[in-house]
């Protein structure tokens, strides 16, 4: 269904240009369905109840660094 597509082609091309990719390259025709598939799988995150938990980020300064 078109409504299930997380990224339409125009938005994809805009973001690809912003990211520094060559939007005239025929490679983009291969990349677009791959990106759509990846972004669809990322939506599995929506099934996780994260509550008020903060992101688990790795770079926490040690006391010695302060």
């Amino acid at each position: 269904m078109p409504g299930d597509n997380p990224l339409n082609r125009d938005a994809f091309l805009y973001l690809a240009a912003q990211a520094g990719l060559d939007t005239a390259s025929p490679h983009l025709a291969e990349l677009y369905p791959y990106v759509v598939s990846v972004l669809s799988s990322v939506r599995a995150l929506d099934d996780i109840d994260v509550g008020t938990n903060e992101p688990d980020l790795a770079f926490i300064p040690s006391p010695e660094a302060n």
Binding site: L7, F12, L21, L31, V35, L45, I48, V50, N53
Partner: peptide
Amino acid sequence: RLRLEAGLFITAVDYLKAQQARSVFNL
């Protein structure tokens, strides 16, 4: 190349949602 380029389209919000989910996972 495909995997690397696809990563350019992950939003900051989704990245941080994944890190939040990581907190729940680790708990």
